[in-house]
Design a protein around this nucleic acid. Structure first.
Lengths: 211, 211
DNA sequence: CTCATTTTGGAGTGGCAACTCCATTCCGCG
DNA sequence: CGCGGAATGGAGTTGCCACTCCAAAATGAG
């Protein structure tokens, strides 16, 4: 396409200086932290400005509106959530790895004193109905989460650790759902018990397919 | 939120006329419907007034502030959710009953075209961190939900349908968590598949304890 | 019927939050 | 070193929204 004209709002690719990139990142991080603590609608743009140490014009220079900022938050939190699960997430191909992964998740929630729930799941529950674009982003985020679970279990089955008749795709989806539900209840009750119980039940079902 | 005046609004007069009771109920029902559709913060008090056909003074006559109204919404939706699961919820003491209950939940979500998630769970994810009183209410709501699951499974075990070593309390909690997580993913993906998969996995685990 | 109490009407009001605008400074590049 | 575009400052501006207030109408107990 011709590059003689500047595609203002249409083009997502804007020339950003290293400094600009840093500012943009600071805004997204501040917004992510606030959204994690208080949710989307209770997080004001002004709050983000203060937390990130930027002016209103800066924020609106990098993000057209709050909705756009929130989609950036979703993208950022998706990366964070996957990273928080460590390299193990990409190699969940043994019962030992699954147990370590489970322990890591529980320890993380305990360190947070069970506050906050899932950074992505909370956003999903809040704006899934009102922002179709954000919903699409979130579907994609969860797909990125579910994929390594699927492939890990598939590897176990192919390797012979799980029986041939184990529907690993189904088990992976059930595991992710249990995790999400466990997080909601853990956030409410301020105990990791629901999270542990939900994940352990899913893992027990997986173990029942042990070859 | 504007002023933290010592609440004289705190105790709404218990002396309510039949007419007053009806008005109050209309407000709660309208608020519940709107919250289910758009969430707590996106539901304006004015929206509730319009939907319920009442004036501002009426609404604030029965509810001191929005927060109080939202707690009434939680109470109302708790009753509705339990009622929506039919009388079966109180007699989940056989595999057949569990299957019927599961089918009912899936059918309900399908009828809603997978929109809306869990009326209680959505509120939980949205305001659990910012309203301690509401959080306490929600803990209680989920307890009312979990209790019949627990007692149904306990009955099955006592009756000999489940093995003695089945930890029915744990299975009940895992089932509720799977249900919640399944609803979140079903709401996002607009397919009942996650909900079905999550519940079925839990039921399969329960069946594995068949005596 | 009387009168206290409850219920209702509806126009404010004050504050906050999202977003705008324009001037100024900074930075990379030739 | 000069220029164009990027980055920044910060004071508006607009509109929404939770909440208030005063007065009137309906209701019910005695």
């Amino acid at each position: 396409m011709p590059s003689t004209t500047i595609a203002e709002h249409a083009a997502p690719t804007r020339r950003l200086t290293a400094k600009g990139e840093a500012t943009r990142a600071r805004i997204v991080e501040a917004a992510s932290a606030l959204v994690f603590l208080h949710g989307v609608t209770r997080t004001g743009v002004e709050d983000v400005q203060r937390e990130a140490g930027v002016s209103a014009s800066q924020l609106y220079h990098y993000f057209g509106d709050k909705q756009t900022l929130m989609r950036a938050v979703i993208a950022h939190q998706t990366v964070e959530v996957l990273a928080a699960q460590g390299p193990e997430l990409d190699a969940l191909d043994s019962f030992e790895a699954l147990d370590r992964w489970r322990d890591g998740l529980v320890a993380l929630q305990r360190a947070r004193h069970c506050a906050g729930g899932c950074p992505i799941g909370s956003i999903a529950a809040e704006i899934a109905e009102d922002d179709p674009d954000a919903r699409a982003d979130l579907v994609d985020s969860f797909e990125q989460w579910e994929a390594p679970l699927r492939s890990g279990l598939a590897t176990m089955r192919d390797r012979g650790a799980l029986r041939k008749d184990a529907d690993t795709d189904r088990l992976a989806l059930a595991l992710l759902a249990a995790l999400q539900g466990g997080l909601v209840l853990t956030q409410l009750r301020r105990t990791t018990l629901p999270l542990e119980t939900a994940i352990d039940a899913s893992l027990e079902l997986i173990r029942s397919y042990r070859a």
